[in-house]
Amino acid sequence: MSEQTGKQLSKEEKDARFEAELLPVLDPLYNFAYRLTLDEDDANDLVQETYLKAYRFFDYFEQGTNAKAWLFRILKNSFINEFRKKSKQPAKVDYSEVEGYYNSEDVEGEGGVASTTDMRTESVQDLIGDEVASALNALPVDFRTVIILCDLEGFTYEEMAKILDIPIGTVRSRLHRARNSLKEKLEKYAKSMGYNS
């Protein structure tokens, strides 16, 4: 089945390709939607809308190209256009505030409480997971997005630039600031667990 640009697909072809190429991305796409909206119902709506749009514009999708990146891009645009306004977002943090926070030294004196905890137990692993999630969720959505795309979904900088419609330089600087902020939050947590770095 060779692909020609602008070729109109029959409904059967379209349905078959939709099942084979786009639906397998459902899991990462839903996870991305959930991490953006932080709400299961919103994630559901966002993913449904993304797939409807993808089906409608399927003729523009070139077979063999990166279906995952294409769907992520549609979802991110839908999120910006419709969901961002109405979803239950945590208050946006000013970038400079995040940076200032990173430099603060008020982490002493909080440690010691849980220092006897055994890091190997499952419940502690869960705790770390929860802590990572809450640190990530507290980031401004633009920062959270690059972390998800890069560290969870393994997109390259170039793919991220295409998904987000920003230059690679911006991808890099967002990633850098997002990681600094996460590091600060998690180091504070590590200290409170009795780990001194």
């Binding site: 639906l23 459902l26 899991d27 839903y30 996870n31 959930y34 299961e40 994630a43 559901n44 993913v47 449904q48 692993q125 770390i128 997971g129 990572v132 999630a133 990530l136 972390i147 560290d151 969870l152 996460l182 998690l186």
Partner: peptide
Amino acid sequence: IISGHLKRVIVPESLA
């Protein structure tokens, strides 16, 4: 830590 500890959410069965 991020890639290893962040739990993935489970897609509702009805979504597809």
